[in-house]
Design a protein around this nucleic acid. Sequence first.
DNA 1: ACCTGAACACCGTTCAAGT
DNA 2: ACCTGAACACCGTTCAAGT
Lengths: 180, 180
Amino acid sequence: MVRSDARENRARIVQVAREAFAEDGGVSMNQIAQRAGVGPGTLYRNFPTKEALVLVVYQHEVDQLMESVPQLLAAQPPLEALRRWTIDLVAAMRKKHGLGDALSPGAYQAIAEQAYDPVITAITQLLDAGKSDGTIRVDADPRDFLQLTGALWRAASGPEDRSASMLALILDGLSTHRHP
Amino acid sequence: MVRSDARENRARIVQVAREAFAEDGGVSMNQIAQRAGVGPGTLYRNFPTKEALVLVVYQHEVDQLMESVPQLLAAQPPLEALRRWTIDLVAAMRKKHGLGDALSPGAYQAIAEQAYDPVITAITQLLDAGKSDGTIRVDADPRDFLQLTGALWRAASGPEDRSASMLALILDGLSTHRHP
DNA sequence: ACCTGAACACCGTTCAAGT
DNA sequence: ACCTGAACACCGTTCAAGT
């Protein structure tokens, strides 16, 4: 039986963490505990590690991205759907950049691994749609596309946002049409 | 006037740091000081911040990459020279991955910024050679290429090394030839 | 069954005291 | 002019004591 205060504490911790990570990735666990009005022990009872907390906060964003795929494919051609979806993906990464700032690159890799399967599934759906109607090269690989996408959010974070032209370059490489 | 012990201390610190970062990115400043046989104060006298130390260790690797460009261009066609140079770049990034592990992503970004100009210069030289002889698209952008290259070392660090096929995809996108 | 908060081993960094 | 090493404010994490 879960006590109601326990359930409320957990909800409040997640809520506070979501806000705290968004505004500053350098928040410590003790700070989050304090802002949530609980002791550090309670925080660690719910999330045994900082990584676990970040993972939960991250999961929500990933879920939303996955759910958008069918609607995008229904509304426009596959290549355009892929373009829009990728822009959303980059925006989500950018928005949650603070999460990465809170972690060591090793833990960041762990997050990437957790999101890997669902994201690959989404990209596969988008690519397959384009392969079916002949607009995307049949040898296009979802894993390669995801990796290249990682470069986009870096480009988007730079002084000038070059992610759009980079995305165009990648999509051009994937498409079956000839270069002009 | 620099005292000889001071000069030797500095050299020993850099030497120790080079080794320590290579084998484990999680080394602390106090650990490096201890392994170099100096007090923490001496370490901080030479390198006011951990980032400064990592920057110096990193610089050497970057310098070597820059110097290799002319020889590569002299020995093979531009596109092949670019391929080999990029493989070297990824190898260097991979080898020095520990450096990134020691830092927050923010500091990692600072490192990327320090290396940015020289690396862009190198890529520009390689691309220009290909544009001159017509094997590389004239609209190929060095900055885009560098960003995409960042994805390669992640691919190289994964379970299966997919960086070669990704590099081929990128180079295919840059080349003037038509898809098969 | 759950919470609190003092405490631990560390971190990067500083600075008085020495030579 | 340079070095040492104790010390500081913090970090993520633990655990005895409470309710």
